[in-house]
Design a protein around this nucleic acid. Structure first.
Length: 831
RNA sequence: GGGCAGGUGGCGAAACUGGCAAACGCGCAUGGUUUAGGACCAUGUCCUUUAAAGGUUGUGGGUUCGAGUCCCACCCUGCCCACCA
């Protein structure tokens, strides 16, 4: 009796594959290329878990199928190795992050090979390798040279526990994403990247790519474009004015007060005229020091202080209105000031109610329902109480009022984005050192004119009263290697541990050779991961980020799959960096302005009761355990069978048993090759058709079930398949279960590897059925099913059906009103 | 508060442009095989009912010869974002 022994089979084939070059992508090839990319993992100490595998296996199926279809496939793997967990591990254990990383990547690679993934490991990259991050630093320098990176003092989210500045996206609910500590505000000098400059293009070019609609929506929402009007409100008895941004200029007549953000500069300018300045000042101080957490929890409780002695003028009607400072207005969106229309904005309404401010209805909904002063009406409608605009439709009023104000020079069209510049500094150790040098001598040498034109943050910085010129490291001196340090912890002041390393900190200025200082911040995780797919095209190039020739051949990425959680930020950042590199000609123009042609996202794999798998909950499933028990093929097929690829799925180890049974059944079949049976042949061709279509549309689960149905049928039949058809079956099976397929291929005496055959095509001739099952309905209810010839005519069908016993029984004493006939499917008699 | 995804057996899930609801798998039940367990094989398994028949896709309505699928209203779950003017 044959026994299915996955351990033996899998080891054997993995040895063959990984010691040969079957998975290697060839840079020059006559055939068409196909670039399949999966997000590279952060090599944590825990190793791979079954969630990673879902993406790898799914795209491995795609990659293998594309190869069988004759494409020259690039399917690479690498490591996103910089990052906090490894650094925290170093702080705890004293083990150098590089050593830990080496350990972890070895582990990951080994695990991936145990699954039989067809990655081209000869192109493996590692973001913490100086030969790689040389180019990450190089990109930063190019950004700097184009004025797209700058240093600015800003309030950052500071985690007092991790002693690290956090990006907005790392703050969840006012707490540090990693340690859960409450985040506070802290002013720090940070490097920023001007992604905002690309906002419009990042929206527009979404039209060029094949992403799921929800991903496109996510990107657009994050960029948050809004088109509106910037309107000037004069401050009474002064020459000053406050600009506000609004998308609802049609509500202008309902504006009954103005609100400034606490950080608004106008307050300082009006200092002497504000009668209650002390109270205002203390409100501002309090607002500024508020923790993120408090601000969020106080959304419903809007607070503010009136600037007594100050009035603004509503440009619509010349009326004087009060001015407030309140922290529900944000300094970093729009102009940092708003015109408040309490009748038609919920936030303004809440505020006006609290401080007893007047509320004037100016928009009435189209049903003409009167405003009830109970809550704001935010919809559109027609104008009331708006002088000569009253009665006008709100859409038309927008244009009219905008024109009227523009002609008076009081307003202009404006577009704002929610997207902010990207904070690119981390006061940490385990990251790419930012290749910047600060030289005070160079600054002093500058001509007065140059100094006048210089911008802080772009050309110079000020540190403890001294000005320094910002000078990028010379490109020939890259990589700027991350030095050894004694301690990996940030300093008490919250500086990078690099600041304590004198050999690193002190450097000769590349311009004047005098004593200068290095930047000690490092880059965030994103830095290495937003251009890695370019490096795979040419991973060993030491003169360029990647050569033009391999880039032109391989790019763009044809299919990129990754986690749902990366579909906004990682995707946006990497699209931006790509566009920049494309603009400066590093990436050939011919590739086009987008890096990824198609993006898909796999769903998460959850533990029991829909709980996320995590180390702390102890419910992480390690693929090794599964492989030890059932084999890699079973793991692969199970992960594809578990549910729709793009939806979350619940892991159930018991479910693998069914897959194991299926594979076992497959293994025992070969004795049945020989005889011919047209029914089985027909099913095979149907199966080929379904599996081909399903894989292309990411429906792996139904593709697997089609394979099962075929095997079940074969298992029951007394007869088998001929050799050619058996080959076809093995080939379509091999993308899911490559080891067992290869073994059976060899055992059957077929030539070459199953891996390098041709993907079979189904033959419609074989699929065609002579007879079809016609559903017979009476009044839409199924009453009978009869077998009729393919393509039977309507008249024939009627005649046949009306003769049958069952139909006659149901028809007794009833008249036919109508008959609906759907060819080869159904006939419905309406009585 | 906004956006997105989803709601179908005991469970994971199928159902192409409206046309046999529950394919495939797990689990369960009965029988066979086995020293026993496991494994394997066979049969059955949405609900009510012996059957005939009827009912059933979160709830309520609508369109249609016909609705899990389309339209309207509502309820629930998950994820993401959140004072963005």
């Amino acid at each position: 009796m044959r026994k299915y022994n996955p351990k033996k089979i899998e080891k054997k084939w993995q040895n063959k594959w990984y010691s040969s070059d079957v998975f290697k992508a060839k840079d020059s090839s006559g055939s068409k290329k196909f670039y399949v990319l999966v997000e590279f993992p952060y090599p944590s100490g825990e190793g791979l878990h079954v969630g990673h595998c879902r993406s790898y296996i799914g795209l491995d199926v795609i990659a293998r199928k594309k190869r069988l279809e004759g494409f020259n496939v690039l399917f690479p793997m690498g490591w996103d190795a910089f990052g906090l967990p490894t650094e925290n591990y170093a702080i705890k254990t004293g083990i150098h992050p590089a050593a830990a990383t080496l350990n972890n990547t070895d582990k990951f690679r080994k695990q991936q090979k145990r699954i039989g993934l067809s990655f081209d490991f000869s192109r493996e990259i590692n973001t913490s390798d100086p030969l790689y991050y040389k180019w990450t630093q190089w990109i930063f320098i190019q950004l700097f040279k184009k004025g797209l990176s700058y240093k600015a003092k800003m309030d950052i989210n500071w985690c007092p526990s991790c002693k690290i500045g956090l990006a907005n996206e790392e703050v969840l609910d006012g707490k540090c994403e990693r340690c859960g500590f409450n985040v506070v505000k802290k002013e720090k000098e940070q490097w920023l990247i001007k992604i905002t400059e690309y906002a419009q293009r990042l929206i527009d070019d979404l039209g060029l790519v094949d992403y799921p609609e929800r991903v496109k929506i996510g990107q657009k929402e994050w960029i948050g474009k809004s088109q509106g009007l910037e309107v000037k409100f004069k401050i009474s008895k002064t020459t000053l004015s406050a600009s506000v941004f609004t998308t609802r200029i049609d509500t202008l007549f309902g504006c009954t007060y103005l609100v400034l953000a606490p950080e608004h500069q106008l307050i300082e300018k009006l200092k002497d005229r504000i009668k209650n300045y002390r109270i205002v000042k203390s409100y501002i101080e309090k607002a500024k020091s508020k923790l993120e957490r408090e601000r969020i929890s106080e959304i419903k409780e809007k607070t503010g202080v009136e600037l007594i002695g100050i009035k603004a003028v509503n440009p619509a009607n010349g009326k004087e209105i009060p001015v407030f400072v309140a922290d529900y207005v944000l300094i970093n969106y729009g102009t940092g000031a708003i015109m408040a229309v309490p009748a038609h904005d919920k936030r303004d309404f809440d505020f006006a109610k609290r401080y007893n401010l007047s509320i004037i209805e100016v928009i009435r909904d189209n049903k003409g329902q009167k405003f009830d002063y109970d809550k704001a009406y935010e919809g559109e409608g027609f104008l009331v109480n708006s002088e000569r605009f009253s009665g006008m439709d709100s859409k038309r009023a927008k244009d009219k009022i905008a024109k009227w104000l523009s002609n008076k020079g009081l307003a202009e069209n404006k577009v704002y984005y929610k997207l902010r510049d990207w904070i690119f500094s981390r006061q940490r150790y385990w990251g790419e050192p930012i290749p910047i040098i600060y030289c005070s001598y160079c600054w002093e040498k500058k001509l007065k004119k140059e100094k006048d034109e210089a911008r802080e943050g772009y050309d110079y910085i000020v540190k403890e009263g001294i000005k320094y010129e910002i000078i990028p490291v010379e490109e020939k001196d890259l990589p700027l290697v991350l030095p050894e340090v004694k301690e990996y912890k940030p300093t008490e002041k919250g500086e990078s541990p690099l600041a304590k390393n004198k050999d690193f900190l002190e450097v000769k200025c590349p311009k004047c050779q005098k004593q200068a200082q290095r930047e000690t911040d490092v880059m965030p995780n994103w830095a290495g991961s937003n251009w890695y797919y370019l490096r795979y095209c040419d991973p060993y190039n030491n003169n360029e980020l990647a050569g033009k020739k391999p880039l032109s051949y391989w790019m763009p990425v044809d299919w990129y799959n990754g986690g749902m959680e990366h579909t906004t930020l990682h995707l946006l950042y990497s699209r931006f960096i790509y566009k920049f590199l494309w603009d400066i000609g590093v990436v050939p123009k011919s590739i086009g302005p987008e890096p990824y042609r198609k993006r898909t996202s796999h769903g998460m794999i959850l533990g029991e009761k829909m709980i996320k798998m995590s180390k702390s909950k102890g419910n992480v499933i390690n693929p090794d355990e599964v492989i030890n028990k059932y084999g890699a093929d079973a793991l692969r097929v199970y992960e594809m069978f578990i549910g729709p690829f793009e939806q979350a799925a619940i892991w159930d180890t018991k479910g693998i048993v069914g897959i194991y049974r299926f594979l076992q059944r497959v293994y025992k079949l070969p004795s049945k090759i020989e005889a011919k049976d047209s029914e089985l042949k027909r099913l095979l061709h149907k199966t080929i058709k379904k599996v081909s279509l399903d894989i292309d549309s990411l429906k792996f689960n139904t593709a697997v079930s089609a394979l099962m149905e075929f095997i079940n049928k074969w298992h029951k039949e007394k007869t088998g398949l001929d050799k050619d058809d058996f080959k076809k079956f093995l080939i379509i099976l091999s993308v899911f279960a490559p080891h067992i397929s290869e073994e059976l291929w060899e055992e059957s005496g077929f030539k070459g590897l199953c891996f390098s055959q041709k993907w079979p095509k189904h033959d419609e001739e074989f699929i065609r059925e002579d007879k079809v099952l016609l559903i017979v309905q009476i009044n839409g209810k199924v009453r009978d099913k009869i077998e009729v010839g393919q393509d039977i005519s309507e008249d024939n069908a009627k005649e046949t059906v009306l003769k049958t016993e069952k139909v006659n029984k149901w028809m007794q004493g009833k008249k036919i009103k109508k008959i609906i006939f759907v060819k080869n499917k159904l006939i419905n008699i309406v009585v």
